[in-house]
Amino acid sequence: MQVTINGELRDIATQTMQQLLESLGIDPRKVAVERNAVILPKAEYMTTPVVAGDRIEIVHFVGGG
């Protein structure tokens, strides 16, 4: 199925948000995730399925002033 992650169209298998982050090599503790413009609390990564057409934003802290 196709989903948009950080503005990029990607083909992925059916999975949860937790599994998606792991497959991308991302430590869930260090990021915040928005799914279809709604922030997903960390506690819900395990139980939230990623659905075809989802628009996902994954952000973290970088150097800034």
């Binding site: 990029e8 991308l24 994954i58």
Partner: peptide, 14 residues
């Protein structure tokens, strides 16, 4: 610190 998109293709060093 700033809040930015994670680069999906680069090292995840933070």
């Amino acid at each position: 610190v700033a809040v930015r998109r994670v680069n999906l293709d680069r090292s995840k060093e933070s």
